[in-house]
Structures are given as C-alpha cells and as structure tokens.
Simulated scan of single mutants.
Amino acid sequence: MKIILTREVDGLGAPGDIVDVADGYGRNYLVPRGAAINWSKGAEKQITQIKRAQDSREIRGLDHANEIKAQLEGLAVTLKARAGDGGRLFGSVSQADVANAVKAAGGPTVDKKRVHLPGHIKTTGAHTVTIELHPGVVATVPVTVTPNK
C-alpha cells in the first residue's frame, strides 16, 4: 500500500514522504491516527504543502541552531495560566503553550514537538524547559508561569 506521511513516523520517514507499507499497517494504524493519507495523483498538492511547512520550521544547520539557541536562552518567557489559591494551576502547561509563549516573547517560531517539559508543570513560578533545536544542540529556556488575573 502506498501512503503519504503527514507527520514524522519512527522507522518510516518524515512528513511528505511517499512510502510503501503493509496494507493492514497503513489502513488500520497510520491512516486512522492521522499519521498518513492514502496516495493518489491529486495528493501531489498536499505533499508540496507539507514539505513547505516543514521547510519553514526546519533549522538550516548547526550554526543556525547555535544562533537560535543564543536567542532562546536570552529570552524572558512568561506564561499566564489559570491558577487557584496557593499557585496550583487548573490543568497543566503544555508544549504548545510554551511554544506560543516563546513566540509571544519575541523569540523564533519553535515546533512544539521539540519542546521538552520537566514533567507536568502544574504550579506557578519559575520552571526550566529544554528545546531540542538540532541533534546535539539543546537550548535551556527559563519559563515563568504566572496566575492569570
């Protein structure tokens, strides 16, 4: 079965890749979970859109990754979240929340899949988040969670 990957799948490939997989794996696992779509001639437009989106987020090498690391580590990222008395959050801070807060603080666009949280962030205060920019280049970003008034 020929499919087009819509997100990165370990052992298969990156978004936009056309791969051959077993019929059952593609039909029962990848397609229902949104990791792939069935290949067709009309899907060429979707492939180009996926590749274009991937290229815009991609870091262009080790030097570029080090530049972005310096930018990220110099940021003061503040994230507002709903909290009760005592600083306990209603819910928790997600990877997407951190990626959006980095962008709002004037930093570069960061893919939420590359944000690594130190467990679940469920309290207000200062936390340390790591962002994997490139193999071997990891930025450590201080994130301050404040209660939303």
Rank of each mutant, 00 (worst) to 15 (best):
A81F: 09
I68P: 01
H116S: 11
G106H: 10
I59C: 00
F90D: 11
A99F: 08
P108G: 06
A76D: 11
F90M: 00
K80S: 13
K122P: 07
A70G: 02
H134A: 01
R60H: 00
V77Y: 06
P118N: 01
A126Q: 12
V137M: 02
T124V: 15
F90K: 10
H134D: 09
K112N: 00
A70Y: 01
P135D: 06
E132W: 04
Q95M: 15
A81H: 08
I131D: 01
G87V: 14
T144Q: 11
G74Q: 09
K80T: 12
V137Y: 07
Q71L: 04
N100E: 15
A65E: 01
E132S: 12
R57N: 01
H127R: 07
A105S: 12
V93N: 09
V98D: 11
A105Y: 05
K103M: 10
A105M: 03
E67P: 06
N100L: 12
K80F: 08
L133I: 03
A83S: 12
P142R: 03
V77M: 08
G61I: 11
H127T: 09
T78H: 04
E73F: 03
V141R: 03
H120N: 15
A65D: 00
P142G: 10
E67G: 01
T78K: 15
R57I: 15
V98F: 01
V143E: 01
V102T: 12
G107N: 02
A126I: 11
A70S: 03
V137C: 11
H116A: 15
K122D: 13
V141W: 05
E58C: 07
G84K: 08
R60L: 09
A83H: 10
T78R: 12
